[in-house]
Simulated scan of single mutants.
Amino acid sequence: MGSFSIWHWLIVLVIVALIFGTKKLRNVGEDLGGAVKGFKKGMKDAEDEAPKPAVTQQVSDDQTVDVQAREKSDT
């Protein structure tokens, strides 16, 4: 059976273009491209936000208390 040849893919492309129309396919392509760009931007923004280091507070008398400072969430 194997993989499809280039002729199989061309016939499938023609059938899809006839069913959906080229304008609708173009709109789907633009929407998909916008979604990919938005995803990449979101990933870049997430990488730019560096996590803040934890603050450690030490107490005398041989006791150590670890405290992690966190920002208050808005939820």
Results as ranks from 00 to 15, higher is better:
Lys24Ala: 11
Leu18Tyr: 12
Ile19Trp: 11
Ile11Arg: 03
His8Met: 08
Phe20Gly: 02
Thr22His: 04
Lys37Leu: 14
Leu10Ile: 11
Ile6Cys: 08
Phe20Ala: 07
Asn27Cys: 02
Lys37Pro: 02
Thr22Phe: 14
Leu10Lys: 08
Gly33Met: 13
Arg26Asn: 05
Gly21Gln: 03
Leu13Ser: 09
Gly29Thr: 06
Gly29Pro: 00
Val14Cys: 11
Val28Gln: 09
Phe4Asp: 12
Glu30Leu: 15
Thr22Trp: 12
Ile19Gly: 04
Leu10Glu: 13
Ser3Arg: 15
Ile19Ser: 02
Ile11Asn: 06
Arg26Phe: 05
Trp7Ser: 14
Leu25Val: 01
Gly33His: 05
Val12His: 09
Leu32Lys: 15
Lys37Arg: 09
Val16Thr: 07
Ala17Asp: 02
Leu13Tyr: 04
Asp31Met: 10
Gly34Phe: 10
Ile6Leu: 13
Leu10Asp: 10
Leu10Arg: 09
Lys23Pro: 02
Lys37Ala: 13
Val14Gln: 00
Lys24Met: 07
Arg26Val: 02
Ile19Thr: 09
Ser3Ile: 06
Trp9Tyr: 15
Val14Asp: 00
Leu32Ala: 14
Ala17Gln: 13
Leu13Phe: 12
Ile6Phe: 09
Gly29Arg: 02
Ala17Val: 07
Leu18Ser: 09
Phe4Leu: 15
Lys37Asp: 13
Ala35Gly: 09
Leu32Cys: 06
Ile15Gly: 03
Val36Gly: 01
Leu13Ile: 15
Val16Asn: 02
Gly33Asp: 12
Arg26Met: 05
Glu30Tyr: 10
Asp31Cys: 04
Val14Trp: 05
Leu10Ser: 11
Trp7Asp: 14
Glu30Ala: 12
Gly33Ser: 13
Leu25Arg: 06
Phe4Val: 13
Ile11Trp: 01
Gly33Pro: 05
Trp7Thr: 10
Ser5Phe: 01
Ser3His: 13
Leu13Met: 11
Leu25Lys: 06
Trp9Ala: 11
Ile6Ser: 11
Val12Ile: 14
Ala17Thr: 15
Ile15Glu: 07
Lys23Glu: 07
